[in-house]
Nucleic acid binder design. Structure first.
Lengths: 358, 358
DNA sequence: AGAACAATCCAAAGCGCTTTGGAAAAGTGC
DNA sequence: GCACTTTTCCAAAGCGCTTTGGATTGTTCT
């Protein structure tokens, strides 16, 4: 039978844009039935479902997202708006977060709609997303200590999940956060246990909620050990390598310089090590270092090795967080009546070479 | 008149999803006229154009992208598919590239549609983009030495611009590239001029086109100075910090270790410096270092300072490249008949502290 | 066998925009 | 004042999908 393979994919033929109508005509079925078959509705018999599916595959039929979106009101896209800090700095953590998230999205057939905007312009973008129905939901990055975005999103009824959290009514919306307070308390305690009393905190921007929580953990540990907090030992800024370097130089130039440094991210920590080396000091011997580690992929060992890592760190995978946040958001979009999901992850302390070996 | 401000934006009222039909009824005009007025067509008088625009603004009317897309076939979205390397490594350069690109997109009212995929799966995604008309164009990241994506995109007729280039028929498609060959030739020459003859190249993955060009420039400089190339001095891998560290350790363990190192990216260069410090060597004194620098925002000095930078580098802004690539792509989408655009940017040599001061 | 019911399938009405092919109104020249 | 061009506006037909409200056929029960 000469037509037996007429449905087979043809690489050579410029794939004529086949649509539902044509497909249903070819099959001798109505558009309704074909649509339902393809979307797995129960009111179509298994026999025809298979037949339809095969024809669709063979003819390389791909439903138009615009048309589907117009008909359903769903876009199958998630908005991520990435803040650009004042110094045109774009936080490298996002790429890893997005890599994790995109895994979950891909599995569910969703796309990422990305916008980058100076911090503060995010609200307009959310409004735009909502009123034009451009996305089905958004994830909120880098919540500030006061965070108008959360109330806004609630009021415009756009599903969202916060990476981090902010405000007091944290049970009224979905979020996933690392237990930053606990992480930095434990990290600080570890340094104290090793005999340090003058400990510096090279923190992130303290307009960020996570930075404030880290500082609180840091100070809680000091207080628990009756060490007076000294504000000269605390600094905060965008987490660049250069900042870590300069902060370290400044710290070690103090009269009573700290003997241990805690970094909010591995990038400034690397800058710190560079500064130490310039000063002829060795990390882990002359000065102890602990850093928070988001397990950025481009700073990892290429093969998950046995060698002890360089930095002693408080560690949690930002890729894993991205994946989970995405899953939470999709779940919420699927069932908008579900109650908010909250997850607080504990970071893990990893022994490295920048603190005393135990 | 009590209704004088009935068009004013009302923050409190849950913005009823107003559409073209309602808007035109309110105005007493046809949908045609309103649509044309809003889109700046000439066949509507200035007077009514203004009237329509004001009403639209006041009522906060936002046209539905799905509907517009269905009607026009244009999506006002650009696809970026970011490759994830074998080791789940996601290249941090992309976030800066995208930041630059998003500037151009925002100005033109375009969005970024982001997908992340294991290298090699990109083609399926492009095919999907094309057949479902999900985006109006794509930018091709990280072209390989043999790059099937370019031919594919040509054949499925999806507008694209390559960041980098590949193949021999480079005038048949649009691309923007840095003159990698020239950059590395000059960088190598600078080291040679400073008396180095044993120079190592810590290159990126040589399946990447740019890495091959850099190696060619490196070897050309050696040859021009009658220095025999020594393959032991060349290594290549994903450009992580750890790789730079380990490669440096390995290089300096050779019988005749190199006296100068060239790095393909600032991340491995940082790893290299860390390794030197461990070995008790000082970058710029005991061992010279030159690195290619994409001017990643999170590695820059927070304020464009006067201080001499740490690394001597061959430098070109990847953010600027992102912006320009986006502009080129938009221009091509606007006028699909225009001939391909090619831009070859020269990198700039920046004196830092890791080579002899001149 | 006829009624009652479930299993399949379909025609047609949207979703909210753009755009074609005119029609009505307004301006022009004689 | 009339024919003619130009300006300004409109009705209606899509774009390609989903979904409502039946219609048709096949099964089962009495």
């Amino acid at each position: 039978m000469i037509n037996s393979n007429r449905f087979e994919k043809s690489e050579t033929m410029a794939s004529a844009p086949i649509n539902l109508k044509k497909l249903s005509e070819i099959l001798g079925l109505s558009q309704t039935t074909v649509s339902r078959a393809l979307n797995g509705f129960p009111e179509v018999s298994e026999k025809t479902r298979v037949r339809v599916q095969q024809a669709a595959d063979g003819l390389n039929y791909r439903p138009s997202p615009s048309a589907a979106s117009l008909a359903t009101g769903k876009t199958r896209a998630i908005g991520h708006v990435i803040p650009i800090s004042e110094h045109r700095m774009i936080n490298p953590h996002f790429s890893d977060f997005l890599a994790g998230a995109s895994e979950a999205y891909a599995a569910a057939g969703y796309d990422i709609l990305l916008r980058m905007a100076p911090a503060g312009e995010e609200e307009d973008i959310y409004r735009d997303f909502a009123s034009r129905r451009r996305v089905d939901g958004v994830v909120v990055h880098g919540p500030k200590t006061v965070e108008p975005r959360i109330d806004l999103l609630k009021s415009i009824n756009l599903p969202f999940v916060v990476h981090g959290r902010s405000g007091s009514d944290t049970d009224t919306y979905s979020w996933l956060d690392v237990n930053n307070l606990n992480a930095f308390q434990q990290g600080t305690q570890l340094l104290i246990d090793q005999g340090h009393t003058r400990i510096a905190l090279v923190n992130g921007l303290e307009s960020m909620n996570f930075a404030l929580r880290r500082r609180a953990g840091f100070e809680a540990a000091l207080e628990a050990n009756n060490i007076a907090a000294d504000s000269r030992y605390i600094c905060s800024a965008d987490m660049t390598e250069t900042y870590g370097h300069d902060a370290t130089v400044a710290q070690l130039a103090l009269k009573n310089p700290p003997t241990a440094l805690m970094f909010a991210s591995i990038l400034p920590a690397m800058g710190g090590v560079r500064a130490l080396n310039e000063l002829g000091l060795r990390a882990g011997k002359d000065v102890a270092i602990i850093t928070y580690d988001d397990q950025l992929s481009f700073l990892q060992s290429p093969d998950g090795e046995n060698t002890t890592p360089f930095f002693t760190s408080i560690s949690s995978s930002i890729q894993a967080a991205g994946k989970r946040v995405a899953e939470m958001l999709l779940a919420q979009i699927d069932d908008s009546s579900r109650s908010p999901l909250n997850e607080l992850w504990e970071a893990e302390i990893v022994q490295g070479q920048t603190t005393k070996q135990t």
